[in-house]
Design a protein around this nucleic acid. Structure first.
Lengths: 236, 236
DNA sequence: TCTGTGCATTTTGCATGCAAAGCGTCAACG
DNA sequence: CGTTGACGCTTTGCATGCAAAATGCACAGA
């Protein structure tokens, strides 16, 4: 594209002062990640550097840096010489993801049981009670949000940043496609009971039991999710 | 360093056909990662884009892409507007790393116990016997190499690629600075006995026991390593 | 109609240019 | 003697240019 002097291209951003607090490529990573997770960019979609750069109003350089990072995260596949596309997330991959998460969260629960502060426990209890209320009211969406927050809070209470960031990285992928659903009322009730037991174990600071409960809880959630996915696949 | 016009710069690579199988930035990531892990680039060292690009014989673009990826891996810190430097690896971080690895490997052992093929088990046994021989001969270096291979092999035998790549990513950081040492003959003997027990549990396909043994083994290794690190720090 | 080959276009991958932000230095001032 | 601020060099961050590779398409031959 040759720049026409008579119609100065609006995407020439050099003029704007670089008073950006964050580097542009980070911005782009976040925006693209959101778009992929939210499904705004469908799976398999080709990511043209020129088009995308124009859409996002950045030049190809930061965009390329962002694509590389997303490829590293596993959200896009980079075919050498043939561009990038949104990576497919197979049922198997999702199963693997949940499996690893269950391992991480088991450890997190064990560590949290011994390391969390009284404040951490209070906070967990408050979230748990709120979630229980949403459960009682049958408010699925709110329940899900809090459920996720609780899982994250337990990981954080384990006081291990590496554990937390590893967990977060996995969750980004796991949450793609909104695989957060309960197959049945039955399973929902069960899950709620498991959370109940987990809270109790944490309150007693029973590391082993808390770990086992969360591990088993995650395993069942994974099971349910896999069933749902396979049902959806057969249906679709 | 100014390039002398009388000696045409050899780093002008545009002329060379792009018959590279791998993209240049990957090459650069691997080379830099090795250099950092091997300690060729000391911790805290500033990574100048111009200098490094010249040293590695690439232009700044692929180098910048590589630096971003390494930052993502946690090997370098990217100070916005102020370049990149090799990240420090504190004793705490190493402790965290080992902790997460122990969680991953516990799950791996459990899964491997149920999923590994007869071939996998055979292979593990061979490696284990070889390692035992190195132990008997007092060959630490060879012992370490095989020890690492066995841990990796168990993770692979778990048949979960996500687990394997998560583990690999953590190990890259954990192995930085050669934190692979045994504090004492005593601990070495103990570790060998733990491996012995682990192999037995795996052979019996006792998932729970295999997981517990490896978890405990990793915890103790971490403990020993932390002690060593602190001793080194005090000494240095 | 199907398949293979050559050309034109598109798109990637890398190099380089350029403006702004960082950083050190040194001098003027309190 | 210490502090501050202006100036210039250095380095980063981004935009853009350009060559090679990939892709699509037309067309010829089977």
């Amino acid at each position: 594209m040759v720049i026409d002097a008579t119609a100065p291209t609006p995407r020439r951003r050099t003029a704007a002062p670089i008073v950006r607090s964050r580097p542009l490529h980070e911005e782009v990573v976040d925006r693209l990640r959101d778009m992929i997770i939210e499904g705004d960019i469908p799976v398999g979609e080709r990511l043209h550097e020129n088009n995308l750069a124009e859409t996002l109003n950045v030049s190809r350089t930061p965009l390329r840096e962002a694509l590389k990072l997303l490829a590293n995260e596993g959200l896009v596949d980079l075919l050498p010489g043939r561009g990038a596309r949104v990576s497919a997330l197979s049922a198997e991959k999702v199963g693997e993801l949940f499996e690893v998460v269950s391992g991480i969260e088991r450890l997190a629960a064990e560590l949290a049981a011994t390391r969390m502060t009284a404040r951490d426990l209070e906070r967990l209890k408050r979230m748990h009670d709120k979630m229980a209320a949403h459960f009682a009211a049958g408010e699925r969406h709110e329940y899900f949000a809090l459920n996720h927050q609780i899982h994250v809070a337990i990981v954080v209470a384990a006081k291990n940043e590496t554990l937390a960031s590893t967990h977060a990285a996995l969750m980004v992928k796991a949450r793609r496609g909104r695989y957060t659903a309960l197959a049945s009322e039955e399973r929902w009730k069960e899950a709620m009971a498991e959370h109940e037991a987990l809270m109790e174990a944490l309150a007693r600071r029973d590391a082993k039991r808390a770990g086992d409960i969360l591990f088993e809880h995650d395993r069942r959630t994974a099971e349910t999710t896999k069933e749902m996915l396979e049902k959806t696949k057969r249906a679709g």
